[in-house]
């Protein structure tokens, strides 16, 4: 039997010239946010221009990867390949300590124990050789 695990079936992000640096940082297990050098607005997800002032002057901010569950749902039904074999799973928004919310999964925790306000920390899931996803688990 081949050593490699079953092919990863869940949807993968499409990497392009605009987002590649962000995904490459995730591969190094580093989570970044962006801040506009002109108006100071922070943003998630990464994009080339500041949505507040349209400036292209961007700096990358390394997130500490700590935050709290803002809201969540335990998903019991999803026909998408990959997810239909992984039910139930927890879809959540995490509000990072830096103030921005991101969509993610809460892992390493029984779904019935997930609570809004629960402190969580990032866990880097290397789902393919090219792609790492930022998921979150409860702070012990």
């Amino acid at each position: 039997m081949a050593a490699e695990s079953k092919a990863y079936a869940k949807p993968l992000p499409h990497l392009d010239e605009e987002n590649r640096p962000w995904w490459e940082a995730l591969k190094r297990h580093e989570l970044y946010l962006q801040r506009c050098r002109d108006c100071g607005a922070t943003r998630y997800y990464p994009r080339a221009l500041c949505p507040e002032c349209l400036s292209s002057q961007t700096e990358w901010l390394r997130s500490r990867g700590a935050g709290k569950v803002y809201t969540f749902t335990t998903t019991w039904q999803n026909a998408t390949p990959g997810f239909r074999e992984s039910l139930p799973y927890v879809l959540a928004y995490v509000e990072l300590d830096e103030g921005l919310k991101l969509l993610t999964n809460i892992v390493d925790c029984p779904p019935e124990q997930v609570r809004i306000g629960m402190p969580v920390t990032v866990v880097f899931d290397d789902v393919t050789p090219e792609v790492t996803l930022a998921k979150f688990r409860p702070v012990p």
Binding site: H14, N78, L91
Partner: peptide, 19 residues
């Protein structure tokens, strides 16, 4: 662009409203 940061985590329409 937004899809790249959402679809890998398994959002559904009902899940979006459930949150």
């Amino acid at each position: 662009p937004c899809d790249q940061y959402e679809l890998p985590f398994g959002p559904t329409t009902v899940g979006s409203y459930a949150m």
